[in-house]
Design a protein around this nucleic acid. Structure first.
Lengths: 226, 226
DNA sequence: CGCAGTCTTGAGCCGTCTCAATCCATGTGG
DNA sequence: CCACATGGATTGAGACGGCTCAAGACTGCG
């Protein structure tokens, strides 16, 4: 896929996008704050293996979700921004741990309630379907990134994808560590760091600090992504 | 991917999948054969970019789905066996091409019909949700395979995964070529071939022919998968 | 000021990709 | 029945790039 799909979460109220979250957003408008919200950095919204009790919507902050593999490694499956949902795509128990990267405010609804309402609210049932389709497509995009051979391609794809989700401005505020990025891209922290340094010395990006990146040559980045 | 911060619990890679396709299967019991069914090997059920018109259920044979990347490479996103559904997880247009590996018999239903029925049939709506959740989880598993560093780990994971889907018997009939496997695992055909040869000389598998593999030491394979 | 965590950078090794040749199974035509 | 063509699969040699090991720099915080 030449380009990654547009992010499915809509920062603005809904638009006639095929997989539109309007219905879910409407349901969440009256949702209460999640227990323990706001979450502190490093705090878990839920953990791998936990039974799925509630569905979250992020109001502010950023969340990373990851799986611990049997060999002790960690695979980051995604980063979640305001407007995004968590817990929808799970089965009976969570396959990932969701951890706050920053201070996170979130709402929560009981998933059993949601499922119950879906039995009478067809628009909601449809929205749940569409939300899962969106999660699937994001996962496919992630797989496509992981399938890219080169470190440069993966990092470029990550930067462009995340920048798009942040609204497309030139300056990006990265809420995650290099280790998070590395575990997301299937690389080591060293390679990620080296690649970013290389991109900077090539004049493609400017690293104002470790967490702030400015895209200088977006076109060249897109070309690198291949 | 290095040491973890706080391994709070034993990692649990594989969780029993909720395959509650009963409702969908019921709907498909009266479904007509797909147009052009049976498909010949190499024939496409649908192509990347096509508008999504119908949902397929495979009755016999095997299907590979893949995306063509802008750099000309091909990324296989999955293999589909009898009982599997195609077209459920797509948005308005297909992100992948679905191609018959063998002679394939399939049924088809108009997706608009399905969506329409879902507005009055809540069990169906719920089944559609669950099916998409299943597709998402398979995609996550695929991403986990792609994130594994070594060729041996990826091939072992593929063999075990596919063997499980075939029922768990010791002998496997692989409907796909080495190139298909390579594109699925993000490796080259050479590395896949070399790895399989290595596994055979190690006594872990026996390649009766290129398309027939027998698992001799499943435990060692599972250990390799890590 | 020192500590701990994060990030950067260097040197060398190892595994996968690339390029290339060969083998094998199948099918076709003489 | 065999020679040949074809496409898939295997195998080898070498190059390249990311991982490992290791050291040092930077940041935030006590």
């Amino acid at each position: 896929m030449t380009a990654l799909r547009k992010p499915t979460f809509a920062p603005m109220p809904c638009e006639p996008r095929p997989s539109c979250d309007c219905e879910l957003s409407r349901v969440f408008q009256t949702a209460p704050a999640a227990p323990h919200s706001p979450f502190s950095p490093g705090q878990a919204l839920f953990r791998q293996g936990d039974p799925v009790r509630q569905v979250f919507r992020i109001q502010s902050g950023a969340v990373v979700s990851y799986s611990l593999l049997s060999d002790g490694r960690r695979q980051v499956t995604g980063f979640h921004l305001p407007g995004g949902f968590l817990g929808l795509e799970a089965g009976v128990s969570h396959a990932t741990t969701a951890e706050a990267l920053t201070t996170v405010e979130a709402q929560a609804l009981d998933r059993s309630d949601l499922a119950l309402r879906a039995t009478t609210d067809n628009a909601l049932a449809r929205a749940l379907w569409q939300a899962s389709v969106g999660a699937f497509q994001r996962s496919e995009d992630h797989a496509l990134i992981l399938a890219r051979q080169g470190a440069t391609e993966r990092v470029a794809a990550f930067l462009l994808d995340f920048n798009e989700r942040l609204g497309g401005g030139d300056v990006m505020d990265l809420p995650m560590t290099r280790q998070d990025i590395a575990d997301y891209l299937g690389l080591t922290i060293h390679t990620v760091s080296r690649t970013l340094s290389q991109l900077q010395s090539d004049g493609v990006i400017e690293a104002k600090s470790t967490r702030h990146v400015r895209l200088l040559r977006r076109t060249r980045l897109e070309w690198m992504r291949a």
